[in-house]
Design a protein around this nucleic acid. Structure first.
Lengths: 232, 232
DNA sequence: CCAAAAGTGTTCTTACTACACCCATGG
DNA sequence: CCATGGGTGTAGTAAGAACACTTTTGG
């Protein structure tokens, strides 16, 4: 069917955000408590309406800044998927473009949020417990976590969870937490330092993890990891 | 920002389809000629409006059936990405949820289409030529092709391009065409028959490719290829 | 000195590549 | 008999897993 300029059905379009971080050795997501019906008092993913003259990507960026105070330079932000079930919002027809954001653990807890109550919660608790998120946000969160897990394998995205500069050990802990399994430190070190363009030495070292001083690194310009890091 | 039931900006929501097939040893996409402004006379991806009470996925399925006559049992259909630039349609604010469909070469050329002119065109010609598709459909097509290429590596999706049952040689030709590079037939045979759950023998054979009779296969129930087939 | 984390070397095993070779059909 | 594609065997090589071992700090 061809586009027709007149008489099209009206939709509301929103963005929802799956904001992930690694905190206290757990993968955590940002959730906000809803202050009004429907799902009043329940936890939900942060999000909001796309403005009339606003790009969808820009809306995601704006909402992220509003909820976390984070700029695009500090986080990785990408489109996740779009959720368009007619009954996903009981009030009206809403199509939501979900986005995935990966951030380093924030020194300050969720600054600049305009939601009454916003906090980090471990994804295992959010997805495993009996308490469900509002709307179809369980499904969106699940999809976001799955995407993040998959992308660690073949992209340098894990570094988005680390504050720069970081050590190889800190980076390894990110993989272990996100994948939920231990990784051999020796082999990990070799693979990750050997992947061209992944890590750039700063020349500095640190002993903040204890033990022998570790090299500090920043992320390189590689966009794809070759060979990929594989989950056992 | 929390959802508010009143005073939300109105959008039109459409689905656009990147329908791919392998035909005449080339990766081809389905395009329709636009009969009205804007972009009148230009080629575009098939698509149309999502109806008020219709799921976005159902809309994609419906449009696919309208344009090609194909049912969901015959093709692979998945959401690709959403395109939401405020200026992507000069008439109004349209957010489009693009979908990717992979189909076997059709015996009949595009049956049941309600577009005046619909046809298969090699993606190389569509993306390489100076003639651009309508709207942002060049970008959408490019994203769809890239997704398809990537997914062949680690999913059994290549079989969606083959009519069942198929031979290993036919399957290999799909990979060669989509990736644009020759593959060693011997090693390919071993890898693909060795991947658990990918191929199921029918017990039948055929000589339709000439030479020694080849086993005929159907797709198995594997959803992930281990180990993945890699592009050189 | 000891614990802890960083980093290197080595061995074993597995997977991929390249290519020799045989098989079963049609013409 | 020969051309054509189907299918198997095998040797060489690259990559990953497991783990012994050395290094450098803090306490």
């Amino acid at each position: 069917m061809a586009y027709q300029a007149s008489d099209y059905p009206p939709f509301a379009v929103t963005v929802d955000l799956v904001v992930l971080t690694v905190r206290d050795d757990a993968l955590q997501a940002l959730v906000v408590r809803r202050g009004s019906a429907p799902f009043e008092g329940r936890w939900a993913l942060p999000g909001g309406f796309v403005q009339v003259e606003e790009d969808v990507a820009a809306a995601a960026e704006r909402e992220l800044a509003e909820e976390t105070g984070l700029q695009l330079t500090d986080v990785h932000l990408e489109q996740l998927a779009t959720y368009g079930d007619p009954r996903r919002d009981p009030r009206m027809r809403v199509v939501s473009v979900a986005h995935l954001a990966l951030a380093a653990d924030l020194p300050t807890p969720v600054a600049g949020s305009d939601a009454a109550d916003a906090r980090w919660r471990p994804v295992d608790a959010l997805l495993g417990g009996s308490r469900r998120l509002a709307f179809d946000h369980d499904r969106i969160l699940r999809d976001g976590v799955e995407r993040a897990r998959a992308k660690l394998e073949y992209t340098p995205l894990a570094a988005s969870f680390c504050g720069e500069p970081f050590t190889v050990g800190e980076l390894r802990r990110v993989y272990e937490v996100v994948w939920g399994q231990p990784i051999d430190p020796r082999n990990f070190h070799r693979k990750v330092t050997g992947a061209p363009g992944f890590l750039v030495e700063t020349g500095e070292t640190t002993t903040r993890q204890g033990g022998r001083p570790a090299q500090l690194y920043r992320v390189g310009d590689a966009t794809l990891l070759v060979p990929p890091l594989l989950r056992g």
